[in-house]
Amino acid sequence: MSTQSVPVLAANDAASYLDLGITLALNNWPALTLAVQSNWGGPTSDDKRAWLCGAISEMLTERPETDAEDLEDVLIQVMNDEFDVVIDDESAAIVAVEIMEMKQHTDRGNFTEIQAMWEAYQLKSQQKSASAAMFKKVDAKDEDQETDDESDEEGEDVEMGDAPALVRAPREKAEPEIDDDGFTMVKKKR
């Protein structure tokens, strides 16, 4: 489930806000983002991230005793099993604590933090797409210039001059060595 397809949430739907918060936390986790972008989990890496979002949501719903350490263990295990990534930078603990804090907020009906995260994520996505569009525009402009330059040069021969001759010192051929029995010694080439 990508965050762009997140439906508009009902004003007081705590479970939906928690799902959104989990999705945002995992999409903002650099280790998982790199693993997905690099397809370390195979061609279905994005689907695995979406599955992880749902699995965490389900775990928090079905096992309310879950704490940040349990969640950290799950994150580390999934990264290792599904993406072949060993997390040793404490980032899984940070993400786990962030998700557990969001759960506490949503349990109290406080959704402002998740709403702020969603707005920041949308702004970041818009900036990325604007940057990508600018890059494409500049890249297309460069291609137009190259074709103009190439068409100016077509049909024209450029004088390169003569290349310098390769100079090598002549090799001295080694005389074969003949031992006392009349056999020729074989030497290794260097």
Score class of each variant (00 low, 15 high):
residue 110 N to I: 06
residue 72 E to T: 11
residue 127 Q to A: 06
residue 56 I to S: 05
residue 14 A to S: 11
residue 48 K to P: 00
residue 36 V to K: 01
residue 29 W to E: 04
residue 145 Q to Y: 15
residue 20 L to D: 03
residue 153 E to M: 10
residue 53 C to D: 13
residue 23 T to S: 07
residue 64 P to I: 06
residue 190 R to E: 05
residue 43 P to S: 14
residue 91 S to M: 14
residue 31 A to E: 14
residue 64 P to D: 14
residue 7 P to R: 05
residue 189 K to C: 10
residue 148 D to E: 12
residue 155 G to I: 00
residue 52 L to G: 04
residue 179 D to G: 05
residue 169 A to K: 14
residue 103 K to I: 08
residue 45 S to Y: 02
residue 19 D to W: 02
residue 29 W to F: 07
residue 38 S to F: 00
residue 180 D to P: 00
residue 104 Q to G: 06
residue 72 E to D: 13
residue 2 S to G: 15
residue 60 L to K: 01
residue 102 M to R: 06
residue 6 V to E: 11
residue 149 D to Y: 06
residue 20 L to Q: 12
residue 80 N to R: 06
residue 163 A to K: 10
residue 6 V to T: 12
residue 155 G to H: 07
residue 48 K to T: 08
residue 151 S to A: 11
residue 50 A to W: 07
residue 36 V to C: 03
residue 43 P to E: 11
residue 88 D to S: 09
residue 133 A to S: 05
residue 141 K to I: 02
residue 169 A to W: 15
residue 54 G to K: 06
residue 34 L to Y: 01
residue 59 M to P: 01
residue 146 E to M: 08
residue 78 V to A: 03
residue 49 R to Y: 09
residue 118 W to F: 15
residue 16 S to L: 04
residue 128 K to E: 08
residue 95 V to G: 04
residue 119 E to A: 14
residue 58 E to K: 11
residue 143 E to Y: 05
residue 59 M to S: 08
residue 179 D to Q: 14
residue 156 E to R: 10
residue 12 N to F: 07
residue 36 V to Q: 01
residue 168 R to D: 13
residue 137 K to Y: 08
residue 150 E to D: 12
residue 106 T to R: 03
residue 147 T to I: 03
residue 173 K to V: 15
residue 26 L to D: 05
residue 54 G to D: 08
residue 126 Q to I: 00
residue 153 E to P: 02
residue 35 A to S: 03
residue 135 F to H: 14
residue 186 V to K: 09
residue 80 N to Y: 07
residue 63 R to E: 15
residue 102 M to F: 11
residue 102 M to C: 04
residue 162 D to I: 00
residue 120 A to G: 11
residue 62 E to L: 13
residue 141 K to W: 08
residue 25 A to Y: 13
residue 44 T to A: 09
residue 130 A to M: 04
residue 124 K to W: 09
residue 117 M to H: 09
